[in-house]
Simulated assay, not measured.
Amino acid sequence: MIQNPTMTKEDLIALGYGKGESASYIAKGKRLMVDKGYSYYKNPRLARVPVYILEELFGYDIPTPLIKVADVVDNRQRVKNPVLTKHDLLYLGYGNGQVESLMHQAKQIMVEKGFDHYLTKTVSRVPAFAFDKILGFVPPAIPDAQATVKMMRDKRAKSAQAVRLRILATKND
Results as ranks from 00 to 15, higher is better:
V51P: 02
P65V: 05
D35S: 14
Y41R: 05
I67H: 01
P65T: 03
D35F: 03
Y38M: 09
K36R: 13
R78S: 08
T64V: 15
L54R: 01
Y52K: 10
N43W: 06
V51H: 04
E56A: 11
R76Y: 06
Y38N: 03
G37R: 09
A47E: 14
R31I: 05
Y41S: 02
L57H: 04
L66D: 13
R76H: 08
G37H: 10
T64Q: 15
G37P: 13
P63Y: 02
I62A: 08
S39C: 01
I62R: 00
K42N: 15
D71S: 10
R76W: 02
Y41H: 05
Y40T: 05
I53A: 10
N43I: 10
Y38K: 11
G59T: 11
R48Q: 15
L57G: 04
I62E: 03
K68W: 09
E56P: 01
D71V: 01
P65D: 07
S39H: 05
Y60H: 11
A70K: 04
P44M: 09
G59D: 09
D71R: 05
P44W: 09
R78W: 02
P63R: 08
N75M: 01
P63L: 08
V72A: 14
D61Y: 09
E56V: 02
N75E: 10
Y40L: 10
E56R: 06
V34C: 12
R76C: 05
T64K: 15
D71E: 10
L66M: 13
G37C: 12
P63E: 14
V51K: 03
E55K: 04
P44S: 14
Y38A: 01
V34H: 06
R45W: 06
A47K: 08
Y60Q: 07
Q77T: 02
V34R: 05
Y52P: 00
R48F: 03
A70W: 08
S39D: 13
Y52G: 00
G59C: 10
V73H: 04
S39W: 01
Q77H: 01
S39L: 12
P65A: 07
Y41W: 07
T64N: 10
P44Q: 04
N43D: 15
V34F: 07
R48T: 15
Y60V: 04
V49R: 03
V73R: 05
E56I: 02
V72Q: 12
V34I: 15
G59H: 06
R31T: 09
V69W: 00
T64I: 15
L46W: 09
Y52A: 02
D71K: 00
P65Y: 07
